[in-house]
Design a protein around this nucleic acid. Structure first.
Length: 584
DNA sequence: CTGGGGACGGGGCCC
DNA sequence: TGGGCCCCGTCCCCA
């Protein structure tokens, strides 16, 4: 007994699910494009993929081996068994690229098919790199310049071909702009599209001193709580279960599901401006819009929970979101209309579909760099106790910016040299040895930023510098802070001169520490592994969850010494104290 | 309308 | 490398 076409139908279903992002649990980053897929499918298609998806939800592919256009075909092939050559390039060239990619990805059947095609067409099969790179092969952050092999145009995500996806396509032209297969960055479920306000990724991660990234495990571990996956999938599963009753696995992939299944749209934003227009949503995507979390407690907390979509939308109407992202990170203007900045034709999203990275927006104003010296970023310029100020020594310029320095978009602030690529800048930065910079400083050319000094002053009473040097023998030669171990000292010293070697793979924002970047990316992807067992709310950080739990417990450990007011969060106490200390 | 409080997000820093 | 904590901020509700 055998059901005819069973496998075919199954595959068709899977491909449809891929098109919708349904149950997709892995993201593949290829240059400036994101693809969603299913781990199982990838693992079944290639040993290489199998090894990659085993522990990672986010996979970066070597852009020298595969480009987005090719990978789209590869992915289509994996899901359909059909090879649909792209029409916009010569067949031979296409198959050569496909062969290279297939070899790299250890898709032997596809590679064989390509070789066959090439042989038939008289083309010489590329040597490719048939020697399988394997999981330990060099995977890189997509640090390629946008202009390299990126298909022109705003679309940085690649949908399954309509025929394969068997998707209702309301509008082909629109589909080009808003693909079902687009990698939808942002959070979902309770947190919706980036309740954190993060995201649409600008994939043109321009710079990258970043280390090869063997797939960031952004999902981390997830507490055994809460139905996040169910939340995320509710539009599909029609589940109205309480988070607690959710039975869907909350493994890594479940966390990822949060971002991949309900996120209706993403913009990878290489200089693309997205139009926030609900009319362009497909019906499927409309369905994907969660109706909000299940009713929570009647408490204020619960009320807030029920407001979450509103909150997210409010993020868009926020003043900070009014500006188009000149730096290539999209943002919809306040009225939800595309401004056409960046040459993007304007993919369409509902306002609550798009995700924004506030910092990128702000940092990107007027084509400024991603660093925080734009002064536009509230939080950034303030710099969190000086942290945000210490790192702006090097200007990172994002592709898509109006080149203010000609071709040398990446400028080293200490020496003023410009470089055409972030790689070169970072290489150059490395030539600035610490000693050299310190010498410079002594010579008066290295000017410490005022904010930094101020921050140090503020932190002086409790700062490490006040610790006895006997327990902290490693002293910073710049600010005289001392540390217990040399690694920490070095980490600190970098804040004085080497700024942001860790670019976000999605938006290109640069970070001083890898961990910060990883954490940032989690917000892009909506990965919130830490769930509250009480209300199901999810957080990107354990600390936030701990903090949040006080809402339920009623614990208010932070007490104002002036008025006795108690607070659940220290920051609110601080805010409260300002009220006491402010002149008014 | 405004100020205060509650809750939460992001980034920097140190461990 | 990740956790914890700090800072910055925003958004919302309510009096």
């Amino acid at each position: 007994m055998e059901l005819p076409n069973h496998a075919k139908h199954l595959l068709l279903q899977l491909n449809q699910q891929r098109a919708k992002g349904f149950l997709c649990d892995v993201i593949i980053v290829v240059e400036n494009a994101l693809f969603r897929a299913h781990k199982n499918i990838l693992a079944a298609s290639s040993i290489y993929f199998k090894s990659l998806v085993l522990h990672d939800n986010l996979i970066n592919l070597d852009t020298e081996m595969v480009n987005p256009s090719v990978f789209r075909q590869v992915l289509d092939f994996i899901y359909t068994g059909k090879l649909l050559s792209s029409s916009d390039q010569s067949s031979e060239q296409n198959f050569s690229a496909l062969l290279t990619a297939a070899s790299y990805l250890q898709l032997h059947d596809l590679a064989a098919l390509c070789r066959k095609k090439l042989k038939r067409s008289g083309g010489k099969p590329l040597p490719g790199k048939p020697s399988t790179p394997g999981p330990l092969s060099r995977l890189r952050l997509n640090n390629q310049r946008l202009s390299s092999s990126t298909p022109a145009g705003p679309n940085n995500h690649y949908p399954p071909t309509p025929s394969d996806a068997d998707q209702p396509q309301p509008d082909e032209g629109l589909r080009d702009k808003l693909s079902d297969d687009e990698m939808f960055v942002g959070s979902s479920g309770k947190n919706g599209n980036g309740g954190n306000g993060s995201s649409n990724g600008n994939l043109s991660s321009g710079g990258s001193a970043g280390e090869p990234d063997l797939g960031l495990d952004l999902s981390k571990k997830s507490p055994p709580s809460a139905g996040t996956a169910t939340d995320a999938l509710s539009p599909h599963s029609n589940s109205q279960e309480s988070p607690q009753s959710a039975s869907v696995s909350t493994t890594n992939s479940a966390s990822l599901d949060d971002s991949s299944t309900t996120l209706p749209g993403v913009d990878t934003c290489g200089s693309e401006t997205v139009e926030l227009n609900s009319s362009s949503k497909t019906s499927e995507e409309t369905q994907n819009q969660p109706d909000g979390p299940p009713p929570q407690k009647k408490s204020r907390q619960g009320a807030r929970k029920n407001e979450w979509p509103k909150r997210e939308a409010s993020g868009l109407k926020s003043e900070n979101h009014d500006r188009p992202l000149v730096n290539g990170v999209i943002v919809g203007p306040k009225d939800g209309r595309s401004s056409g900045v960046g040459g993007g034709s304007g993919s369409s999203f509902t306002s609550d579909q798009s995700f924004q990275c506030k910092d990128e927006e702000e940092g990107g104003e007027n084509g400024q760099d991603h660093s925080e010296e734009s002064g536009q970023s509230d939080g950034e310029s303030a710099g969190g106790g000086g942290g945000g100020t210490a790192g702006a020594n090097y200007v990172y310029r994002q592709e898509g910016f109006e080149p203010a320095f000609g071709d040398n978009l990446y400028v080293c602030i200490p020496c003023g040299k410009g470089f055409p690529s972030s790689e070169q800048l970072n290489a150059h930065v490395e030539t600035h040895t610490e000693d050299e910079l310190y010498i410079k400083e002594e010579g008066g050319t290295f000017v410490k930023e005022e904010d930094e000094e101020e921050a140090e002053d503020l932190s002086a009473p409790v700062g490490p510098s006040n610790f006895g040097s006997e327990t902290r023998p490693f002293k910073c030669t710049v600010c005289s802070k001392s540390y217990k171990d040399p690694a920490t000292l070095r980490q600190h010293e970098k804040s004085h001169w080497l700024t942001r070697p860790f670019p976000c793979n999605i938006c290109g924002k640069m970070f001083t520490q890898r961990g910060t970047m990883t954490r940032h990316m989690r917000s892009h992807l909506g990965l919130k592994p830490f769930a509250c067992e009480e209300c199901g709310m999810r957080f990107t950080r354990q600390y936030r969850l701990t903090e949040h739990m006080r809402v339920h417990s009623g614990e208010k450990p932070y007490e104002c010494q002036l008025c006795g007011g108690k607070f659940t969060q220290q920051r609110n106490l601080i805010s409260h104290l300002r009220m006491h200390t402010s002149p008014s």
